[in-house]
Design a protein around this nucleic acid. Structure first.
Length: 332
DNA sequence: TACCTTAACGGCTCGCACCT
DNA sequence: AGGTGCGAGCCGTTAAGGTA
């Protein structure tokens, strides 16, 4: 391992930029400060660093190229204003070593790992390496019923055909993130979040096991992934989890809800969001997209939940948007 | 005329009791 | 802790009517 002989909290004096981004002397400082991390450099070599950054909805996509330096992460995050994130990292080219208090992992091209920036770990770039990362607020994962429990700062993702497929999609996403428009990036970002259960399932961070809590979380995950599927039913979810319908139902009931009520609330919330959008979508499209096979049922359910018919709600939202556009004082 | 809402009815989900 | 069976109530479907 390269000996990191000096600790520096500011950007390197002589960075080598290898064309994946334009040079910005503040970038390195921002990158390290943003992650609550600090860097160490092998002063016998020229540090090697470049980065491109895109936002895809709530997740941040980065392609990072580094060499001959180490990055310590996770120290002092609790004391700083920096929000906790989970980072998915895939090695596109080269090698790196990641170390936390329990283990040392050597990663090569194609390997994937999950990092919790609230727990300390160090990334050693002993040679130039190109990595793609996605930074996700844990809340976004827990909202999808995906448990976020890290026992250490670094969790390897074990390779299998499903993980490989997700990784390839992830790398393609990172490669094209810069050229995609905001709307497309956001959509692909959402798709990636939906696939995170596969990555988490294959990482040591997922130890939900067969406990009731674990079953509940996995059930919510299935519902969040399939709320638009009109065939989703209690028995389908139970079958996928290899438990009986009554066990699944009891797990939800003990927490004051039921599986299908949970799916139902997700569907209606999603429908409300679609109808709040500025682009025109028909009520039929919204109903179909949210897993309602019957427009009649959707209309009745929406009215019961939100106090007005879908058409009226959409009209009200368009009117509010139009008022905001014509009244400059309404703009914040 | 297309799109949406309302009403009626059958099937499924929920909640409970009981059993293993 | 988890499975089975059953009844009540809610959800989803169909048909008819209303509205822009």
């Amino acid at each position: 391992m390269t000996k990191a002989s000096e600790i520096i909290a500011t950007p390197p004096m002589r960075p080598m930029w290898h064309g994946i981004t334009s040079y910005d002397p503040g970038l390195w400082a921002m990158l390290t400060a943003e992650c609550g991390s600090r860097a160490r450099f092998d002063i016998s070599r020229e540090a090697h660093c470049g980065m491109e950054h895109e936002q895809a909805g709530e997740i941040a996509v980065r392609n990072v190229e580094m060499g001959w330096q180490a990055m310590e992460r996770g120290m002092g995050l609790a004391k700083s204003h920096v929000e906790r994130h989970i980072t998915v990292l895939a090695v596109q080219r080269g090698t790196l070593v990641i170390e936390d208090r329990y283990q040392t992992l050597s990663l090569k091209t194609g390997d994937m790992v999950m990092l919790d920036d609230a727990l300390s770990h160090t990334l050693h770039f002993n040679h130039p390496a190109l990595c793609s990362t996605v930074q996700i607020p844990p809340r976004v994962l827990t909202d999808r019923g995906i448990p976020v429990r890290f026992s250490s700062g670094c969790q390897p993702v074990h390779a299998n055909p499903e993980v490989t497929a997700v990784r390839d999609l992830f790398l393609t996403f990172c490669a094209h993130a810069g050229s995609a428009g905001n709307a497309l990036r956001e959509r692909v970002g959402l798709q990636f979040l939906d696939l995170m259960d596969i990555v988490m399932k294959s990482s040591d961070a997922s130890h939900s096991g067969r406990s009731t809590e674990g079953m509940l979380l996995r059930a919510k995950q299935i519902v969040a992934r399939r709320f638009g599927d009109p065939n989703l039913s209690l028995s389908e979810i139970a079958d996928e989890l290899h438990v009986s319908s009554s066990s699944l139902f009891r797990a939800f009931r003990d927490r004051g809800m039921s599986p299908m009520r949970f799916a139902y609330s997700l569907r209606l919330e999603h429908a409300k969001n679609m109808l709040s959008g500025t682009s025109h979508v028909s009520i039929q499209e919204v109903a179909a997209h949210c897993g309602f096979t019957s427009l009649a049922h959707f209309s009745r359910s929406f009215k019961k939940e939100h106090g007005m018919a879908p058409r009226d709600y959409a009209a009200q939202q368009r009117s509010v948007a139009a008022d905001a556009a014509t009244d400059p004082d309404a703009e914040m």
